[in-house]
Simulated assay, not measured.
Amino acid sequence: MSTATTQANMSLVSTKKLAVVYGEGEIPLQLAFSKRKTLEISVHPDKSVFVKAPEGTELEAIEAKVKKRARWIKHQIRYFEQFDIRTPSRKYVSGESHLYLGKKYRLKVGIGTDNIVTLKAGFFLVTSTDIQPNHVRSLLSDWYREKADLHLNKVFSECWAKFRKRDAEKPNLKIMQLKKRWGSLSKNRTLTINRDLIKAPKECIEYVIIHELCHLEHYHHGPEFYQLLERFLPDWEKRKYKLEIALI
């Protein structure tokens, strides 16, 4: 197949996003090149398809491999679709589960003279003179905010220790509630991470922070970015996978 024909069947969206025509539809995918010997295809829980190919691999070879594995890819996508129904919205009443650092804790709400939130024996224990759901939610939110400010700063410092040898200027850390992103790095070198990460396992928090720190050198998601990310986190895909299902 000629290059022209290949490009007609693979619509280039960016340096890493492609769509392979298969049957009457197409398979969108994300492509990254690295110093490896074999081509790898993976399907993530968000149903995105990721291809890692050896440097210099022709597009028609990638297309052929994706088409050869198309039935498997479709099967994996259907498998992950069953998890699209997430945990119902919390109602902040006794019995429901809440997350902290990747572990689930059952909520117990009780009357008390002080506003107290503690973790004990697998339970979130909340006591207050007011046990209405909105007040319980406010108490838990304050607790999460305090823990996030403390713990996320600590993990950031640990991650930065790996980067400071690369002569990069340390970014300012900002922790806040984000609706659609786990983290971002602005051009004024402010690294913002989602406060809700306090609910995810530490290895997932590290993944988000390292991911954003890699943008200090590569402000894009091209091959060089993924090569650097893999250098610091060889298992980054497993961490990303775990993060995507952690808050179910």
Rank of each mutant, 00 (worst) to 15 (best):
K147S: 03
T129R: 15
W160D: 07
W143E: 04
F163P: 09
F156T: 05
P133D: 00
N153L: 11
R137M: 12
S128T: 04
E158H: 09
R137E: 13
H151L: 10
L125D: 05
V155M: 04
T127K: 14
C159F: 05
V126A: 10
T127F: 10
S141I: 02
L150P: 01
L119P: 07
D130E: 09
L125I: 14
N153Q: 15
F124Q: 02
R137L: 08
D149N: 15
L152F: 09
Q132V: 09
Q132K: 15
R164Q: 15
F123P: 07
W143T: 01
F156M: 06
S138W: 06
E146K: 10
S138C: 00
L152W: 03
E158W: 04
N153A: 11
A121S: 14
F156C: 04
D142G: 07
N153S: 14
D130A: 06
V117Y: 05
K165H: 10
P133F: 06
F124L: 09
D142V: 05
N153E: 08
V155D: 04
S157T: 13
A121W: 00
L152Q: 06
H151V: 07
I131H: 00
E158I: 07
H135L: 06
H135F: 15
S128M: 09
L150I: 03
V126Q: 06
P133C: 03
R145Q: 10
I131L: 07
D130N: 15
S141E: 13
I131G: 01
V155F: 03
S157P: 04
W143F: 13
L125H: 13
S128E: 04
D149I: 01
N153Y: 03
Y144W: 04
